[in-house]
Design a protein around this nucleic acid. Structure first.
Length: 927
RNA sequence: GCCGGAGUGGCGGAAUCGGUAGACGCGACGGAUUCAAAAUCCGUUAUCCGAAAGGGUGUGUGGGUUCGAGUCCCACCUCCGGCACCA
């Protein structure tokens, strides 16, 4: 009610709106057109899918990025910090089916909502660079690149068994099927379906994609190791086995296998083909096995791939009725087809060595096939195939292997390959687990593949001057299956660019990961008409210096984007860029407690009341949190802390919280509650704490602006200050160092905020002890102003609204976005007195305060005196002096003029303390 | 099974190069202010023994290296993430 308290009370809604309007009007975050003297910094966060509204994960992701963008700006960089929309994709189509909204309308209205939410959070984006991947002005360049890839043979069409999601009605790339064989997006089971589709030859780049990982120091280990595993390089040999007997139709009489164990070739006793291998049925044709093989292959074709390739599935197979000849020992081995052999890895055929491969062992045991030992364990032991219970897969010495006998098996790999090469029956080779990237999607809401089919000329690329192939808006989107484009005659009916005759357009659209593979390039020159990126702007801004996003994209988006970067480099668009993202930060998940009622149903956090109760358990008093339902009053059980998800009803809505607390509070909480790379546990009490801190700073600054009016910050050398003021300045300048290191080097934003909180606590104490002096307007006032200004400057990247408001209230004419990052004054930050901890045998026994410039003998003397009680009369046997140890700054106490421990002195006096007669110290001896 | 990551007070988390474990925040408790409450401000808060001074114990478990270990080494346990019949 009183005007004074209103003035002291911080009102986020009005203050934040004011600054957001200012940034928008002023285009504060636009990058200068021309590159000047400043270095560039390209700060990027993964752009969102416009699903409807922001969730907490977005708030956290973008808060982290915004701190870095604003910090780098203050550090003197030209910061490129764009935002846009990953706007193609299935949810738009599903919404259309469910609610009758057109995907475009749904998408653009979601974008409008989410853009407003982002602006409401005060992020420092250059909105003039905003892009949406569903705009034809964006995807036309993707289509142009596709045509280049087609020309170079890097894009091709191939039929085969594909991952198909029945629920999404489309194919999926291998990366998009999770470990349980479910769709990455909808979670429904993925089945196999025979289809033709478009692929990009990512396998051509497998080696480079792998090689570069080794030097990508700015990426988290978790991501690079995942990518290494996904690429899955293995070295071995390809070996040609000739068929025994007459050669069946359609075969050149040879079956090639890939193995990583050429050293076991002499132990090969059969061969296994994938059921889908082109020779499987042909080999069986005309033999008495024909019917059995056909039945087996057909049955496998109907079996779910996830089940078939589950390691727990029992191995089974059928003899195909023919034999192959082992090229090194001439042994005739039976050929089987087996369920566990994968058609799309290696050649789809494997040589089987049951004694040294567990899968082959199980298969051979089941079907009574010979086992031949060719590797014996190190030492004198020899293996007996008839008594083995499992395959011997470890290193050993080669036996039964002709001239290789006695060779260590590792060396034998090379010598067997040499023998194969000599006999022209094989060679050393490398295989990758990575498969080509399937990019066709049988859906509407994506970028059309720019290709036309003509009965006369076959597949004809759309001429570049006819791009873009625009996605038509007037489509019938229904759930009846098949792509809406395939039912849209005006779209697919066209004429052949070559012969002018009637032709049909490709109705597949591209995987949305295509768009997200190069959007960061388009941001460099989003309105450029001459190509996908203006070469000058690409040269100026690429690569991205820091990229922040979720780890769920470790092998999908992040692998595709790396591949696409290399493609575009080789096409000449970005000649100097090998890798897109110099530093990658994967932020942790946002988690929240989950709640269930007595029926085991999930309950919303907003529907319950939580209270703490003191209870006595086993005579010990502890605090227990209990929850009750607001409406029913029934007890609700507090469950595990889980990732926020709609299904568990444990989400919190950013919009509501922003309306209540303001953007600064939300940002501060997200950044303070845990370091960026770790999971964050949502806590309403924690949000309150962040809000309280802002209020605390607000009141502190307002008290002084009211009392003092504009006062210049202290600029002297400290010689005119008393010890308390010197100590205060020391705290200020030490905080500058801490925050700078935490943000710039460690990306430890939580401790950066904690450091400012400490400084604010110190200021409160100083204020209480020196009210009169501060109000007097003299040098002490200016020291206080220096401190307050520093707090605002250090806090501005985290909470830019209220800091700007206070900056203005302090009488500053500029805005914090134009104020450079504070520089610490080394002499002001230096301690005059430091605390030394004295350890005896590693235990802390005393601590002494010494002058910062005290030399070692003086410190040792003081330490000895302080530790006299422990050392006794005899001199210590050994003194360890550890200079220059910076310890945490937690014990700052400016009023007392006590510094903090930079040095340490440890004492050891093993023998003198414990006489040799002490039997409990056998290791001691009298010197 | 293989590959990553993590385990620290009642809770979220600090501890930068092997050198004072528990910064900062939350919660709790006490005090000030208030008619009262909220808000705010101040203080206490790992644990055990002790009136205190002081001391013992303590970073998932068990060993080891070191004057000294949350931090390094060895062997485990638990949880999270990824991959998994890739020959």
């Amino acid at each position: 009610m009183s005007d004074h308290s209103d003035e002291q009370q911080y009102d986020p809604a009005t203050v934040e709106a004011r600054w957001q309007a200012h940034w928008e009007k002023d285009k504060t975050f636009a990058v200068p057109e021309e590159a000047g003297d400043k270095p560039k910094f390209y700060m990027l966060e993964m752009f969102p899918y416009p699903s409807g509204k922001l969730h907490m994960g977005h708030v956290r992701n973008y808060s982290i990025g915004d701190v870095m963008a604003r910090f780098k700006r203050a550090r003197g960089f030209d910061v490129l910090h764009p935002m846009g929309w990953d706007a193609f994709g299935l949810p738009a189509e599903n919404a259309a089916i469910k609610r009758g909204v057109h995907p475009a309308d749904w998408t653009y209205s979601n974008i409008a909502v989410m853009r407003r939410q982002l602006q409401r959070l005060g992020f420092s984006y250059d909105w003039d660079r905003e892009l949406a991947t569903c705009d034809a002005s964006y995807y036309r360049w993707e289509q142009a690149v596709f045509l280049d890839l087609l020309e170079k043979g890097l894009a091709y069409k191939k039929g085969g068994m594909l991952n198909w999601c029945e629920s999404c009605q489309t194919v999926l790339a291998n990366e998009q099927v999770d470990a349980d064989g479910n769709c990455w997006r909808c979670g429904n089971p993925v089945i196999q379906k025979e289809l033709e589709q478009w692929y990009l030859r990512i396998t051509d780049y497998a080696q480079e994609l792998l090689d570069c990982l080794g030097s990508m120091d700015g990426w988290p280990n978790a991501v690079t190791t995942q990518q290494v595993g996904w690429i899955g390089r293995s070295t071995g040999a390809s070996i040609r086995f000739a068929l025994s007997g007459d050669v069946p139709d359609g075969s050149d009489g040879v079956i090639e296998v890939f193995t990583t164990r050429p050293d076991t070739l002499y132990g090969c006793t059969f061969m296994s083909l994938a059921p889908e291998h082109p020779l499987t049925k042909r080999l069986a044709a005309g033999t008495e096995q024909e019917a059995a093989v056909n039945a087996f292959v057909d049955r496998m074709g109907r079996t779910d791939k996830a089940d078939r390739t589950d390691a727990a599935t029992e191995k089974e197979g059928v003899f195909v009725g023919r034999y192959a000849i082992n090229p090194v020992n001439g042994r005739e081995v039976p050929i089987y087809t087996a369920n566990f052999v994968l058609a799309d890895y290696g050649t789809g055929a494997v040589m089987a060595v049951p004694a040294h491969d567990q899968r082959d062992f199980e298969f051979a045991t089941k079907y009574g096939i010979d086992k031949v030992v060719v590797i014996d364990p190190p030492g004198d032991a020899t293996l007996d195939a008839s008594t083995m219970t499992e395959a011997f897969v470890e290193a050993g010495t080669m036996v039964n292997s002709g001239t290789h006998d006695g060779t260590a098996n590792e060396a034998g790999k090379a010598s067997v390959i040499a023998e194969l090469e000599e006999k022209d029956a094989g060679k050393g080779t490398v295989n990758f687990r990575l498969r080509d990237w399937g990019i066709s999607r049988q859906r509407y809401w994506g970028a059309p593949v720019p290709v036309i089919y003509c009965d006369v000329d076959g597949m004809v690329p759309v001429p570049k001057d006819q791009l873009p192939v625009v996605l038509p808006k007037d489509v019938q989107i229904g759930g009846e299956g098949g792509s809406p484009l395939a039912r849209h005659e005006a779209f697919w009916k066209t004429t052949c660019p070559t012969c002018g005759g009637p032709a049909r357009r490709e109705t597949d659209t591209m995987d949305t990961f295509m768009e997200s593979s190069w959007y960061f390039m388009r941001y460099c020159s989003p309105h450029y008409e001459g190509g996908l990126v203006d070469p000058a702007m690409a040269a100026r801004f690429l690569p991205v210096d820091m990229y922040v996003g979720g780890i769920e994209h470790a092998v999908m988006h992040l692998l595709y984007a790396r591949f696409y970067t290399k493609i575009l480099r080789d096409l000449g668009h970005i000649p100097a860029v090998d890798e897109p993202f110099t530093r990658l930060v994967c932020q942790g998940m946002v988690n929240h407690e989950s709640y269930k009622d007595e029926h085991g149903e999930w309950v919303l956090p907003t529907d319950i009341d939580i209270r703490s109760e003191a209870v006595t358990v086993d005579g010990k008093e502890t605090v227990v949190r209990r929850a009750t339902h607001k409406e029913t009053g029934r007890e609700v059980s507090i469950g595990r802390i889980e990732k926020m998800s709609k299904s568990k009803l444990n989400t919190v809505d950013p919009e509501t919280l922003i309306a209540h607390y303001g953007a600064d509070t939300m940002r501060l909480f997200c950044l303070f509650a845990s370091p960026p790379t770790k999971d964050l546990e949502w806590s309403d009490a924690g949000v309150e704490g962040a809000s309280r801190f802002i209020g605390r700073v607000w009141r502190l600054v307002r008290r002084h602006t009211d009392a003092l009016g504009p006062v210049a910050a202290y600029s002297g050398d400290g010689s005119d200050l008393d010890s308390d003021a010197v100590a205060l300045r020391r705290a200020v300048h030490q905080t500058i160092v801490r925050v700078t290191v935490d943000v710039e080097e460690r990306l430890q934003l939580n401790t950066a905020i904690a450091a400012v909180m400490e400084l604010v606590n110190t200021l409160y104490k100083y204020e209480a002890a020196h009210t009169a002096e501060i109000g007097a307007g003299g040098v002490v006032s200016s020291v206080m102003v220096e401190a307050l200004e520093t707090v605002l400057r250090l806090l501005s990247p985290f909470a830019p609204h209220f800091t700007n408001e206070l900056w203005e209230k302090m009488g500053r004419a500029d805005v914090l976005e134009d104020v450079s990052w504070p520089e610490a004054d080394a002499s002001a930050a230096a301690d005059d007195s430091i605390e030394i901890v004295v350890q005896i045998k590693g235990k802390k026994r005393a601590s002494i305060a010494v002058a910062a410039n005290a030399d070692q003998p003086a410190i040792e003397a003081a330490a000895l005196a302080a530790a006299a009680k422990w050392v006794g009369e005899a001199p210590p046997r050994r003194v360890i002096y550890v200079p220059g140890r910076l310890k945490h700054h937690s014990r700052l106490a400016p009023q007392k003029g006590v510094g903090h421990g930079y040095d340490r002195c440890a004492w050891e006096q093993r023998e003198t303390r414990r006489p040799a007669t002490n039997m409990t110290s056998p290791s001691c001896s009298t010197g």
